[in-house]
Amino acid sequence: MTDSIIDAQGLTKRFTVKKKAVEAVTDLTFEVARGELVAFLGPNGAGKSTSLRMLTTLIPPTSGTARVVGFDILRRPADVRARIGYVGQLTSGSFAQRVRDELLSQGTFYGMSKDASRRRADELIESLDLASFAMRSVQQLSGGQKRRLDVALGLMHAPPLLFLDEPSTGLDPQSRANLWQHILDLRAQHGTTVFLTTHYLEEADRYAERVMVMDQGRVIADDTAARLKANLAGDVLTLGFASAEEAGRAVAVVQSLTDREVRREGEASVSVTAPDGDALLPSAVRALDAAGIVVRRATGVPPTLDDVFLALTGRTLREADEGGATPADEPTDQVADDKVGANR
């Protein structure tokens, strides 16, 4: 038996929308080791939520299987559910309920004693900064406050495996930092495995040790953020000179140091995208000096995951978001507050 906490084999999900088949996820195969922190990245409609919903037993795959925390998602869903936490993309709290009540109910749902629920709820209220609205009903919270409650609900029972679907969307920077502090603490204390989706590239970059990129239902890259960037994007170095003539001569000098293509950039600059840019930059300056060419300006810009996505698909994430899914085939998450039937 392997020690993987998630083991997905060929997970595929087809929806039928207006008699047409939409393949939301195609042949998803991957493993996640215990304790890993994996970020799942991709534009709107890529299939991230659908993947999570299959792994959390919410929807059955059209084909393929997965074992989550050691249990088959189709044959032993109850065992899977008892051992995972899930923060969905939408609001988890019921609008008629008060914040603290929802946390306590969630504790009892997971078999915690009343005392343990109270202690844990108060801990989370404190650390996720929910105290000022703990006695309000969910209906009366702002978007970010609701999101913090969602996260608190997912953390109530300190599960060994936590799925988070865009946990930081809608949070202010302070709350986002708090959220991450929490996730990191959880890992440090309990070795929790975290599998999350995000649209924030810098977040995946900074915290996740492993990044999976999904596009149009398929995983198109799966590696550490650092390696993805090195292999697919690289640092962009730009060197400026006093004249176009100097820039012209510089191309050959720099090209002798790298196998990546060196380009003329504007009037008197050259640029190159290389994985080892921070080492290449000083040696390029020295070589140019030796050749009698004076470097006037030098910049090195490290790559972002956006560059990785561009290299993989030919589109930036933003373009993919805009051009990808039309609003009509987005799952509904806009529900007007005034339509709430107050729980009678």
Binding site: T57, L58, G88, L90, T91, S92, G93
Partner: peptide, 9 residues
């Protein structure tokens, strides 16, 4: 909203 979904998990 996602609250029913949460109880299903």
């Amino acid at each position: 909203t996602g609250s029913h979904e949460r109880t299903l998990v």
